[in-house]
Design a protein around this nucleic acid. Sequence first.
DNA 1: AATAATTATTAAAAAATATTAATAACCATG
DNA 2: CATGGTTATTAATATTTTTTAATAATTATT
Lengths: 406, 406
Amino acid sequence: MTTISEEANSVIDIRRNRLRSSLILELYKAGQTSINKMARLFHASIPSATGIVNDLIKEGWIHETGTGPARAGRPPVLYGLNAQKYFTLIMDINRHDTQLVIFDLANQLIVRRQVDLKLEDAEGFLDALFSKTDAFLKFHGIKPEKLWGIGVSMPGLINAQIGINQTYPNLTRADQSLTARLSEYFQLPVALINDTRATTIGEHRFGLAKEKKHVLTVNIDWGVGLGILVNGEVFTGASGFAGELGHIQVQSDGLLCHCGKIGCLDTVTSGFALIRQAEEGIRLGRITILPQLLQEGERLETHHIIRAAHNGDEFCIDLLSRLGMELGKGIATAVHLFNPEIVIVTGVLAEAGPFISNPVEQAIHKYCLSDFKNSLTVRISQLGSKARLLGIQAHLIEHLVSKEFS
Amino acid sequence: MTTISEEANSVIDIRRNRLRSSLILELYKAGQTSINKMARLFHASIPSATGIVNDLIKEGWIHETGTGPARAGRPPVLYGLNAQKYFTLIMDINRHDTQLVIFDLANQLIVRRQVDLKLEDAEGFLDALFSKTDAFLKFHGIKPEKLWGIGVSMPGLINAQIGINQTYPNLTRADQSLTARLSEYFQLPVALINDTRATTIGEHRFGLAKEKKHVLTVNIDWGVGLGILVNGEVFTGASGFAGELGHIQVQSDGLLCHCGKIGCLDTVTSGFALIRQAEEGIRLGRITILPQLLQEGERLETHHIIRAAHNGDEFCIDLLSRLGMELGKGIATAVHLFNPEIVIVTGVLAEAGPFISNPVEQAIHKYCLSDFKNSLTVRISQLGSKARLLGIQAHLIEHLVSKEFS
DNA sequence: AATAATTATTAAAAAATATTAATAACCATG
DNA sequence: CATGGTTATTAATATTTTTTAATAATTATT
């Protein structure tokens, strides 16, 4: 009877909305289920579940998707989300580029476009993002009213509660948070999340961490990021900074880190550190095919080193191996503190595959108490960068559902 | 209508029991509340909350405790737990001694006795515990039928789900977990928890961590233990080992730890390490009053060192300070990973007060990114060992309530 | 192919619950 | 000290929701 956006102050409305949102969320996660299962799952009676399902059908949220299997007797009618009820706009913002993606509610990728927007050019970034997004939506004929919300992922220290990115303060105005600015311009709800955390959610819902409750995701990009899943939920800490593995000290006499401290893990195991070490080796005349891989005037990148390793270049294999050992030592620390079931390695350096994962695993075995190792597996992500996109999507949907059914 | 122990398969019974247990738990936590507040808190109507309250009164769980203040109008009738409905038996088991305590449901300490039971003498420990507990109960006239359950805290790697203590396997039999053995002998439900975790709960419910959501408790006893509170809940990890701060490597060329690895934090910052360092200093002829504090034939203990420091002994102050610095460095790592609001230092070394806490705080400032420091306070526990007792109690009550109202 | 068995769905009755209204209790103010 | 305002409590009514029973749909078996 009550429409969705009405405020729900009465007890029944609260309970009803709770059941509605649980139902929608369950259908998003499970794809499809029967009324019986839903009723049992949420401790409601079958008639009331039926009632809510029928309402949701009328409102266009869900529809029948066929019948399920039955051991015996009448098979259940299955219901699923109406994937085209809304679309979502995903902004996957990185240091070197930005991706704009449209998903439907069944996580089907509708459109995907890489736009030339570098987070490094913080000045004017948002204005450029606005116009390029407008153009993107227009070009593909996505009507704004068909969008349910915007999911944004970025690297950096993100405080999701107030919706700002501490690392890129230029994106925030004194009177308006980053999410508020985006929300105002596009007139849509916005969910902001750190990139590594998005990846963690993606791996949990669609990847190697499915069904697991305690998960660590190590993202090796320019820095080292740690995504943490506790009881199946992303863990952000008191102000959203949890998981800063990159800036724990691993060498008391190490290099100066860009954060101002000395000997951070970042100075040893990041993509940046890898390139520095490779360049130093080349300068010292170490035997390696690296220089031959470079075009005239081209800068050395991590993918060169990875390619060289795959080609058997001992110098590069050695570099990666040492990086893996150090990284594994850092991960061992995190394992002691979080006691996870699985550690997933992602990021650009994950493409180095066993060259990284083997020494990481070795280091974990060396530095972890045996009690931890028994229940632990270390794996390289198989979803790659798709984990992040799907993670943003999942995070956004959860945000939207809890918002929609207040 | 339905009695408590009946199995609740109907939807109504499930919801009713949920509300009952929420109510009892709220009354345990808050001490007393009005029906109005309870109804609002748990999204129930006032008549149904009234009904449940009346039932609980009939069953002897709660009673009126007076009237509350009112800004205007009729003041509310307050209800509170019937503190004498049941008592709880708390076993605080440590390496050097064991305490048996009886609490009522208002957390009032009824009896407390220190018994001469060393966890170190694992052989025959349980049988001695059984008989000494029997004697304790008999002596104080505690009737077994008045006991609601038993809360047990011990040091060691505890897997609470299966109820065993990995560090003291002698306490477990092949066919029976530790909790099962206790439960069978005393014919009571048993809740087992690690000592540092119990302390963390105690600090959260009754101490410095009240109202905080993300808390770290550092327990410096023979080893270094870390208690973790995430979203107000104790965090145990996948197999119950989370928080093993003591065995992360801090010195790659350090001493051999009893765990078999090298350079663990335990080898630098535990009570054991402190005594070792002090003895070494004495042997090397350092200037200190320590030898004078020792009786003929007495062994050096941590409290000697602490007393010497309080008396201005520079050598001991230096020892504690260096220990604090190293500990702070380890805590800084944990802070980077958990981003807590507060870090509480407890354990025997906490009695060293500022001699420890100052360098700890200093180290945290040195090794933590500024973003973490802004929202962080470091404090020495004020409850002392009482935090652990109250923590076991709180943990037990929660366990019992969720069990009682299935 | 028909029937028994099993399960989903629908409908009607019963129970439980929430809402509304009325009453009681109390505080503050004039 | 009385009265108006405010809030808690109780009672009565209305609504929702569950439960139970009946029906429909389908599979497996004889």
